[in-house]
């Protein structure tokens, strides 16, 4: 191939690239100008679709972040070692464990207050030094105030 032929091919290639670039610019301008003139309904649909897509993306990222936190920051993993891993793997069991601890605490509080309740129960009121009538009699209370 001669030098003149090579030069011709280079010029044609440069021309093609220039034309292609110009066509692309024209298309962008055309799209931009049409985008400005879109009917309101179409613009609204496009805006909705964009919001939907962004929302899905945000949700997916949040789920990924939550999953990562759950895997790495589960409270029971503070326990460390195989127990932490075991409880993480058995979530229902850990829920039952928490409920069990709560019930045990309730039982313990009830047992601690039994002696106080006994002193104030109706049975001990009936067995008191004074009969129940003495406590319930408003007249006795009034009479005590004046005597």
């Amino acid at each position: 191939m001669s030098a003149s032929e090579n030069k011709y091919i280079d010029q044609a290639t440069a021309l093609d690239a220039s034309v292609e670039d110009q066509i692309a610019r024209n298309m962008v301008e055309l799209l931009n100008s049409h985008a400005q003139k879109l009917p309101e309904a179409q613009a609204a649909r496009l805006a909705d679709a964009r919001s939907l897509a962004i929302g899905r993306l945000v949700n997916r990222e949040a789920q990924l972040a939550g999953h990562s936190l759950h895997r790495n920051g589960h409270a029971l993993q503070w326990r460390g070692g195989r127990w932490g891993h075991y409880f993480e793997q058995h979530r229902i069991l850990s829920a039952l464990l928490i409920i069990g601890v709560m019930l045990f605490a309730l039982f313990a509080v009830q047992q601690l207050s039994v002696s106080h309740q006994m002193e104030n129960s109706d049975a001990f009121l009936l067995a008191s030094d004074l009969p129940p009538e003495a406590y319930a009699d408003k007249g006795f209370t009034a009479w005590l105030d004046t005597n």
Binding site: N120, D122, L125, L126, S128, P131, P132, E133, A134, Y135, A136, K138, T141
Partner: peptide, 18 residues
């Protein structure tokens, strides 16, 4: 006698007993 007292009298008695 306790069972025949009114709820008011019983409640009064409980508080006085305390």
């Amino acid at each position: 006698n306790w069972s025949r007292m009114t709820p008011y009298e019983r409640e009064n008695a409980r508080k006085r007993h305390q």
